[in-house]
């Protein structure tokens, strides 16, 4: 009963520690990669946090969401990556924001091996992207600073360019053709982009499991907010994605676990590892042919402290819900968010209110309390499926003196 109505947690346990902990063990029968938060002590690409760090993350998240909306709206209108590029372009050319993922595509990174012999490449993993790309030698136009050595096609025994006449290039909705080589281009909501040669090479997901002839972008013109990562690992549902390319090998099954905090590690796994796990609660995945990249789910309700909120199902149905590893904060229709916020505030009235942080408008100052009692929040799906969020999924802990309800509202009900 208690676990369904609330969580008692120490505020300090919601904050990342200064050292990395909780490593994930490899399972012998599963292709499993270690997954870490880009800004935590487990990350090889960690940078020192600035004072307004959390607000920056949330502001970036808003840009990311805006771009997702833009892509979906464009697809609904008949554009958005379904038609060939209208302009011929060389790798140095700016590309329209119609393909690729979005800014802040990954808060979580994994390290893979690319080429023969494999060279380590640290990539953001993103279920909202299809094309995988890395920065490539000789960086004919531009490369940003990255952690790993730049991938050098000349040093790989298995590297090959993809020709314009190939099916792979057709699947890509290529940007251009240059001397018979397929040119890919992905652009991002903030103007970040990667353009280069569409290529194939061996991709080692683990030291013992490689994908031969994996199709990826070998970036020659790369710029933007990618931190120190070498590129992006695309796990969307479209044809160029890793998931689709490995459909026969892993049966279109993959999974991940995002750790509780930035000082813990999670995993990204491929193959049928957990589908028979009796603790897994399943809900239907919905797909839209106009936006094949995205995975949609049918969220129909929310409960707080074990009580279902009075939100008409039509509120959720009107806009739909997609699940995305690259969006930080869950966005709800305004009516749903208002109901959640009201119920949450009612259960948190004993705590001192704190100022809003960016898009998070319901914050509290738990200073001096040590332990806080959070109302349980569950997401409801058809078939009586209830997913009870972890405490780390209910509040966003900015620092020891500010925890905020980790949800935000969309601008409109049909957004």
């Amino acid at each position: 009963g208690e676990s369904r109505s609330h969580h008692k947690v120490n505020v300090s346990s919601l904050l990342p520690r200064k050292v990395c902990s909780n490593s994930i063990d490899a399972l012998s029968n599963v292709t499993r990669l270690r997954l870490v938060h880009r800004h935590g002590p487990c990350s090889p690409a960690v940078r020192r946090r600035r004072s307004n760090f959390e607000a920056e993350i949330l502001a970036r998240d808003q840009l990311h969401v805006g771009f997702l909306r833009q892509r979906i709206a464009a697809a609904e209108l008949g554009g958005g990556g379904t038609s060939p590029a209208s302009t011929r372009a060389a790798p140095s050319t700016k590309i329209p924001a119609r393909s690729g993922a979005s800014v802040s595509a990954g808060d979580y990174i994994v390290t893979v091996g690319l080429g023969t012999p494999p060279k380590a490449q640290t990539l953001f993993f993103d279920t909202g992207s299809d094309v995988t790309w890395v920065q490539c030698q000789p960086c004919t136009v531009s490369c940003y600073r990255q952690l790993d050595q730049l991938f050098d096609p000349a040093s790989s025994a298995t590297y090959a360019n993809v020709t314009c006449a190939s099916a792979a290039c057709s699947d890509l909705d290529a940007l251009d053709c240059s001397d018979g080589t397929c040119i890919y281009g992905v652009s991002y909501g903030d103007g970040s982009q990667s353009v280069g040669f569409y290529s194939s090479d061996a991709l080692a997901l683990t030291p013992s499991d490689a994908v031969p002839r994996f199709l990826f972008g070998c970036g020659q013109a790369n710029e933007g907010l990618f931190g120190l990562a070498a590129g992006i690992l695309g796990l969307g549902g479209g044809r160029p994605s890793l998931v689709t390319q490995t459909m026969k090998k892993y049966n279109g099954v993959f999974g991940y676990c995002l750790p509780a905090s930035a000082s813990d590690t999670g995993y990204l796994a491929f193959g049928d590892s957990g589908s028979t796990n009796p603790t897994v609660k399943y809900t239907n995945m919905l797909r839209d042919a106009k936006t094949p990249t995205f995975y949609f789910i049918n969220l129909i309700g929310i409960s707080v402290a074990g009580q279902r909120l009075r939100i008409p199902p039509s509120v959720f149905a009107k806009a739909g819900t997609l699940i995305d590893s690259g969006t930080v904060i869950t966005r709800l229709p305004p009516a749903a968010y208002a109901s959640l916020r009201s119920a949450f505030r009612g259960r948190m009235s004993r705590y001192k209110k704190a100022p809003a942080v960016s898009i998070l408008d319901t914050c509290y100052d738990p200073t001096g309390r040590g332990e806080v009692k959070l109302p349980a929040v569950a997401l409801l799906f058809p078939g009586d499926v209830s997913v009870n969020l972890a405490p780390e999924g209910i509040v966003y802990t900015v620092n020891e003196s500010r925890i905020c309800l980790a949800f935000a509202a969309n601008d409109g009900d049909d957004d």
Binding site: V253, L258, T279, M285, A319, T330, R331, V387, A390
Partner: peptide
């Protein structure tokens, strides 16, 4: 569109079965 973001997915094993069109959530995944 509503979006289920990564904060809410923390600690769950999130399983995608694309051919069967199922998404699974397992509490305490990591």
């Amino acid at each position: 569109v509503g979006i289920l973001g990564n904060v809410q997915q923390r600690t769950f094993g999130v399983l995608y079965d694309v051919p069967k069109k199922k998404i699974g959530f397992a509490a305490g995944g990591c």
